[in-house]
């Protein structure tokens, strides 16, 4: 295919722009990485950009991995993320499918009522009492069930479902397919890119969440990674140590541990996206189903 000179120039310009974008988005991450390996005093004395750790020191990582709960935290988080995302996907897909059926009489009112929950919420106290009454206190279900559907995600998925050609669905119905079949055999496979986005959003959401765990979990054996890291972070926050004494080694890592926890907590989850990107390849899916 021929491209015009203007298009070629745009291509180069675009590539340059993207490289620039990569620099400004990658660098802060590198900064965090370098800071996490730095010696606290040298790091405090430095200012501006870092291009390598300021005085190499592993103290921050030692403090993080010294914590006996850290591995348990990873394990718990893994369970919550997997199970939670599975629940989310099934529930959201059903919700999106139902609300995308515009022929339903109650479609509009249902949709309106769902949107209302995005802006009106009862607040923490009644939610807490509800979870308590349902007997989910101090169990992982308290972290998963109350957030089974994210309305924002439901609406995004619904929008994707709406763009699935009606003709496909009609022909399936003629072949005797029911709604469940249509959802799982036609609509979902045709919306794989959005499903991938949902997996990413939900998984990252569960991965980063700590508030529900904080409120509903009593037993620290069940703590997710983020809560374990928060404890480590607070324990090493030098600003709050008012009456503490001086020979504490803690001061030596108080500044850098902030960065080490970011690396420890984000490295695994940022690896998820590259795996999901294979669903972002244009045209493959529509062709596959049609053929």
């Amino acid at each position: 295919m021929k491209t015009s000179a203007g298009e070629r120039a745009f291509g180069w310009l675009n590539a340059l722009l993207m490289i620039g974008l990569c620099f400004i988005t990658l660098y802060p991450f590198l900064y965090v990485l370098f800071a996490s390996f730095s010696d606290a005093t040298s790091f405090l004395q430095s200012s501006g950009l870092l291009f390598r750790p300021a005085g190499f020191d592993l103290g921050a990582y030692r403090a993080v991995f010294h914590n006996p709960m850290i591995m348990k935290g990873y394990g718990n988080t893994l369970i919550y993320v997997t199970l939670g995302t599975a629940i989310n996907l099934v529930m959201t897909a059903i919700g999106a499918y139902v609300t995308s059926r515009s022929q339903l009489y109650f479609n509009k009112i249902l949709m309106f009522l769902i949107v209302v929950t995005m802006v009106f919420q009862g607040g923490l106290i009644p939610s807490y009492l509800l979870v308590n009454e349902l007997g989910m206190m101090n169990s992982m279900w308290a972290l998963l069930v109350p957030v089974a559907i994210n309305t924002f995600n439901l609406i995004i998925m619904r929008t994707a479902f709406q763009s699935v050609p009606v003709s496909l669905e009609e022909s399936a119905r003629l072949d005797g397919a029911g709604d469940w079949t249509i959802l799982f055999r036609i609509v979902l496979p045709l919306s794989m890119p959005v499903v991938a986005v949902m997996i990413l959003w939900y998984a990252v959401g569960h991965w980063n969440s700590y508030f529900a765990a904080l409120v509903y979990l009593r037993d620290s054996e069940k703590y997710p990674l983020q809560l374990v890291l928060r404890d480590i972070l607070i324990a090493n926050n030098t600003d709050t140590m008012m009456a503490g004494s001086a020979s504490d080694d803690k001061y030596a890592i108080g500044e850098t541990i902030k960065y080490a926890t970011i690396i420890v907590s984000t490295l695994p989850i940022i690896c998820l996206y590259p795996f999901l990107q294979k669903y972002f390849v244009k045209g493959v899916l529509v062709g596959a189903v049609k053929g």
Partner: peptide, 11 residues
């Protein structure tokens, strides 16, 4: 580019 540009979200 896709992967790198989404990194700041995690900081």
């Amino acid at each position: 580019v896709q992967t790198v540009s989404y990194l700041p979200h995690f900081i």
